[in-house]
Structure formats: structure tokens, C-alpha cells
Design a protein around this nucleic acid. Structure first.
Lengths: 127, 127
DNA sequence: CTGTGTGCAAACTCTTTGCATAAGT
DNA sequence: ACTTATGCAAAGAGTTTGCACACAG
């Protein structure tokens, strides 16, 4: 934690624990805030926002590119992709190595590729 | 327009003209509103929102899956993908046929794939 | 002790909604 | 005329910010 220039306060450590204890997770700020409060850690929404942004800048987590009101954070920073269930705002990991992407286009002049996000949007079959 | 159960009002026709006159476009609600007003079409923001959602339901346009505060609408409904310039909130089309996706994963039970979105996030090279 | 982080509440941005007025058929 | 869309302003949701107090080093 110190490694990233962040002072390990009670709240930051608690959020870190919650985030990384259970493997890969996709969370909104509100979900994480609820979890922390339920775990008996007093913390404000604003601090969750601040902390998640600091973690993002430090490269510990990522912001997911799904449209919709809320921002999703992903604790898995490695290259992998997502299902997104329409209408339910649910995010699922796509099992790794299943998806192949070929022939990446050249980025425009002066740009480089930061990340490739694939989102497979799902809808519930009507039966 | 009538074909989609939409009454062709002055505002809706004007928005349709703006959207589809210039080929593929990626627009926020505010940009389109500004364009309409500049074109001398009196229209309110709320109507632009309403109309774009109606167009989306009718399948005329799509919502883009880019994270960030604003919603982007895309006038190109066919399968194609996007560059997204970080920090500048700019969306660019990826030239078609450049990108290949293979080995799509099976969707979970009871789900079907609605759409595959690929977003290649770009950052400006620092020189 | 000193400096940074936290919490609260208020501010902000984007989007949606309710209701009276206006426009389309 | 009758129905549906529009415009306005206010409400709503999610996120950010400013400032006093508290905690880590």
C-alpha cells in the first residue's frame, strides 16, 4: 500500500481487503460502501469514491466500459472480457482464453492502444 | 418514420435529418441539441432525450458502451467497433473488416448474445 | 506535532418526469 | 376535435468538492 504512495488508513485497508479477498469482482461504489458498512467499517460514500479512484490511478483496479448510469470497478486488471446482461445491469467475466481477437487495427497517428475491452451484451431468451 | 409508429413532427424530422445526413456519427444528446438549435430548429433538451430513446427502440440508432458520464448515440447500427480516446471522450469508428473476433464464448443458460461491442481505448503517446 | 485523509453536506452534471400548451391527423 | 408530442421547470440519480475534525507517522 505504501508502495503506491497511499497512506494505509483504516478505511483504505478495509476497502482493499474487501476488494481483493474474494477473487475477481465487479462492483459499483454503492455496493462496496454497503459491504464495508455491513462489515462494521465506518466509511462515507465520498471516501469510497476517493479511494477507488486512487486505486484506479495506482493500477490496482480498472473502470469497466459498460454504459449506464453507474460506474463499475473491476478488481481484475489483466486482459479479460465481460458479459453484460441488458436490463439487469449485471456484469460477468468471460472465461479466459475463450475469446480470440485478431487483426487489431492501427491506432491513429500519435496514439497507442491502452486497452482492448470486449463487452458481449446478453439478453434473456424469451421462452 | 410512420413505419415505426412515430408521428413525424417537426422536431423528430429535424433530428432525423441531422443524424443521418452526414454518414456515421457519434453524438451526445447535448451535441445534437446544439446542432438542432444552430440549424434554427427550436427544440428542448428533454425532447432530444425522448426522441433519441424512441429512435433507439425503433432500432435506428444505438447507444455506445463507453464509460463516462455522458451517453453516446451511434447512427451506425451495423456491426462495427470503436476507438475511444481516454481523457478526451472522443469516439472514432474502427475501419470495418480490420478486426476479427473468434471463438465467441457460449452465453450462460437462458441467455443469448444481443451484440458484441469492442472498444479499443487509446491514449496519446507522450513524446 | 504536522500533514494527509475522512466525513458531511452541499454543489454539480446528466437524465427523467409531470403537466399545461401546442402541433399533427 | 381528438390524440400525441413538446417545453419548461422541477425532481432524481450518481458523483464530486470544500472545509472542519480526526488519525497516521
Amino acid at each position: 500500500m505504501r508502495r503506491f504512495g497511499l497512506r494505509p488508513t483504516r478505511q483504505r485497508v478495509a476497502l482493499g481487503d474487501l476488494l481483493f479477498a474474494k477473487g475477481d469482482r465487479h462492483l459499483t461504489v454503492e455496493e462496496l460502501h454497503d459491504e464495508a458498512v455491513n462489515a462494521g467499517v465506518p466509511i462515507s460514500l465520498a471516501t469510497v469514491y476517493n479511494t477507488l479512484h486512487q486505486f484506479t490511478e495506482a493500477g490496482l483496479i480498472r473502470v469497466l466500459a459498460v454504459e449506464g448510469a453507474k460506474t463499475y470497478f473491476d478488481t481484475n486488471v489483466s486482459d479479460h472480457h465481460h458479459f453484460f446482461v441488458e436490463g439487469e445491469n449485471e456484469v460477468l467475466d468471460i472465461p479466459v482464453n475463450n475469446l480470440q481477437i485478431g487483426n487489431l487495427p492501427e491506432p491513429p497517428e500519435g496514439m497507442e492502444i491502452a486497452h482492448v475491452d470486449v463487452v458481449i451484451r446478453l439478453r434473456r431468451k424469451r421462452g
